[in-house]
């Protein structure tokens, strides 16, 4: 409903001719650009490639970040050496990794995936660390008491006990990763939503640029609704409202 209202306001603004079509195209023009994109397949293909890179990059970031976070949490020396470095690394915006990705991987999928995962990895590692640190000691004592130790203690007690915390790290990681994918694609101009944005700029096609921005935003909304809201709901149903 809110979005319908937004489109109506938009239509009113653009039809008032207060701003020219070159600044704010009408929803109609943007819709046309979207349909064009679907028809010639470029949009569908762009979404598919970007999503594919996102998923691979995010999977690497979550796996790597979780393992890294566990190490920092379990070994105080690792924390003291790598901990502060990690905070520094996390403060680097994804875009800043693009030049390095270019030098290491060139304008390839590998380069985009590198940018995607590296931006998210440190955020995931940091929240995993703090999540593990916040696990009540009684859970760990209970786990050991019932025979769990080593890796089993981590997978069957420590990780599930910190899962509500981990989710917020994954969520942050996903948003960094999504930014990373688009940034790298814009700069590298390799096929994907980012390069479609680029193409729109080159062709001076503002409708296409705005259409792609809307697609990027909607993917964000959908991922939040279908992945994270669901995970959060499933946690609530087990841990109870908190």
């Amino acid at each position: 409903m809110f979005y319908v209202g937004l489109v109506i306001v938009w239509q009113l603004v653009s039809s008032s001719h207060f701003l020219s079509e070159q600044v704010i195209p009408s929803p109609f023009e943007v819709g046309k650009a979207l349909i064009m994109g679907v028809k010639d397949g470029s949009l569908v293909y762009g979404i598919a490639t970007s999503m594919w890179r996102l998923i691979v990059g995010l999977a690497i970031a979550i796996a790597g970040g979780t393992v890294l976070g566990i190490f920092i949490a379990r070994y105080e020396t690792v924390n003291q050496t790598i901990g502060s470095l990690l905070l520094g690394l996390q403060s680097i915006p994804s875009v800043a990794w693009v030049p390095l990705a270019f030098l290491w991987f060139g304008k390839t999928d590998g380069g985009v995936i590198f940018v995607t995962s590296i931006g998210a990895l440190f955020a995931v590692a940091i929240t995993t660390h703090s999540g593990i640190k916040s696990v009540p000691l009684e859970f760990i004592a209970a786990g050991k008491n019932m025979g769990a130790s080593g890796l089993q203690l981590i997978t069957s007690v420590i990780l599930p006990a910190s899962f509500p915390h981990l989710i917020s790290g994954f969520k942050q990681g996903w948003s960094y990763a999504w930014r990373g994918v688009i940034s790298a694609e814009v700069i590298f101009s390799v096929l994907g939503l980012g390069s479609l944005l680029n193409l729109g700029t080159k062709e001076n096609n503002i409708s296409q640029v705005i259409a792609i921005l809307i697609v990027i935003m909607f993917i964000g909304i959908l991922v939040d609704a279908f992945v994270f809201k669901r995970l959060e709901r499933s946690i609530m149903s087990k841990w109870g409202p908190r």
């Binding site: 009684e138 004592a141 209970a142 008491n145 019932m146 599930p160 006990a161 087990k238």
Partner: peptide
């Protein structure tokens, strides 16, 4: 597990 403990607060696992 040959000496299991019942903790004061239970220490039950909320994810299970």
């Amino acid at each position: 597990p040959d000496r299991t403990m019942v903790f004061q607060e239970g220490a039950l696992f909320p994810w299970l």
